[in-house]
Design a protein around this nucleic acid. Structure first.
Lengths: 194, 194, 194, 194
DNA sequence: TATGAATGAGAATTCATTCAT
DNA sequence: TATGAATGAATTCTCATTCAT
């Protein structure tokens, strides 16, 4: 079924172009025509793959969310104790974002748009999932130890927040690199025992 | 004599309305007319105080930046050692944002806009300033101790990032409260000694 | 009655400012505020003397029309034969316009506006009057001579047109001077006998 | 394939409509929507052919200028002596304008706009060109005769001005016809010898 | 499917005019 | 009378989306 393949390939081609354009100009300033040009297709053809401009932003986020989900699943399969798994999560997430700077940049727009329209992009759910996994691992780690100084759920929020906050600074400031922040993050927020 | 009004008061009235509207609808979806209605003035009157819609966003951010600057200055005057000052900084920043949810929400739009137009809103500089203060305090704290496991500059980035990341989740998720995150943040990222 | 004098003086002050601004920027680009500033009064004060922006343009033209009318009357009282009187008319008209470059410039706008709204400014009547006087003098001159090669009415149109056309070029082109065109106009279009 | 249309034809269709609307209402009072309606297209479609309302005025003038240039070129190729060529120029110019009353009417607006923004529409250059050709022919005519009573350059200004001035009156006054003015113009201002 | 011309709703901004002081 | 803040109608231009080819 070549049709099927073509359709999918065309979709990816356009979505990739959209991500680049969104990253460069911001969603608000990105015209359908810009995306079409970047993708090397005609304006009208964008609508053969995506129903609206907004759907492109959504699809871009979905791509990141899918990879995020995969990452979370991988964490579950990762060998080692909870601390190792947590460290793996942090390192993987940072690596993913560092390798997808454009996608990370689009996050800014998704934040802006997603925060006011919970039904459209469920940012709350997205971060809740992360927090749940992190909190689970923290609880597991502390199961046989004394109660930690910080509740797992709060700790999870801080850890997830720190990742996003580092990404934020990396996106703003060319002087900030993401790679060198990975181990500090692990050291500071994923200590072997609380 | 023309209708008597305090130009500054009128400006604040409109800026306040703009912040509410931006917070509610997002900058992109906020029409000048919405802001005028919220402020109880006519569309054209907005332009007596602000030159453009964009200027309103900028002014909103400037308001936050000013208070941020004041906060940073206050940190410098705060009594106690570097660790206490750091804790004070974290607590004050969180408190400031928690008390200004609308303004915090506008941050989402400013991030989106500021990342693309560095000259317009210097987000890089904004966070650099924070990092510099934090890093300075960390160095001071460690001056007489062994070298810390994490370099002050990276630590600063993580701390500043964690604050913003917690705010982010708070803005997205009604279940996340900011207040209860303050002490965890301090405990995890501002330990008495490294 | 000082009030009476004041009102009139204020009116002149504003009208003069309006003429300067219209001449400089064109009527279309002249804001009431520009005129007020040029006159050194507040925007609202303009409306104490003139009912609308348009009325200012009209008044500017009326000023020129009045002086034109006076000129035409003076022609009637001028000593000498019809040829001398014609030459006097040409010289006076050119002199008038040369001395009132701003007013002449405003003519451009009046042409533009007046041509489509005959009821508003009766440009047709304005030029008809001129033609009538000129044609009358030409007829008088030729009363005792052979029929002229060109009918007085056509001759009048050409003469009046030539004056305006010279003014037009003078307004466009800094290289064109009006003074040196006066005698050529007389020589070419007001010959002693046809 | 997109809707099939000849881009050039569409451009002409819209420009034609614009000229009619400008002629009827004046440039200042002509809305893009009026032009679109007159052309039978949607508002936005005007912008597919012209970048702005102003560009329409410019294009209208350019059309006249092109035909004017062609006319001047034709004068150069016209058989006969300088006097015949001059007469041909006058007759052709009048004929051109008489046949394009709408375009001539738009001239009023162009005068108004062109005088204030020399860089935009170079009216000075436009008339200079005419004067140069006329002056050249006058010099040629007088080459073997006694010095003329009026310098060729002044004579040229008067002749060119007379044409424009007659057009002006024709545009204002329904009683004035352009055709009957052609021969008077030639007789008065293009005599066989000075 | 692919194209890009056509559409028209929509939005920011301007500015003549009004009117409270 | 003088002022200038306030108003809101009006207008240009943009751009997502549609659809004839």
């Amino acid at each position: 079924m070549p049709r099927q393949v073509d359709r999918e390939a065309r979709r990816e081609q356009i979505l990739g172009a959209a991500v680049r354009v969104f990253a460069r100009q911001g969603y608000a300033a990105s015209r359908i025509e810009d995306i079409a040009r970047e993708a090397g297709v005609a304006k009208g053809s964008v609508y053969l793959s995506f129903g609206s401009r907004e759907e492109l932003l959504r699809a871009a986020f979905d791509g990141l969310a899918d990879r995020s989900g995969a990452l979370l699943a991988e964490v579950g399969r990762h060998p080692g104790g909870p601390a190792e798994r947590l460290a793996f999560l942090v390192r993987s997430a940072m690596e993913l974002l560092e390798g997808e700077r454009d996608l990370a940049r689009v996050l800014l727009d998704v934040w802006s748009a997603g925060a006011r329209r919970p039904a459209w992009i469920d940012m709350a759910g997205f971060y809740r999932e992360y927090r749940a996994v992190v909190a689970g691992l923290l609880e597991e780690r502390d199961a046989h130890a004394a109660a930690p100084a910080v509740a797992p759920s709060a700790h999870a929020t801080v850890l997830v927040g720190a990742i996003e906050g580092c990404v934020l600074q990396w996106l703003f400031d060319p002087e900030v690199e993401l790679g060198p922040l990975v181990e500090p993050l692990v050291t500071l927020l994923v200590p072997p025992r609380a």
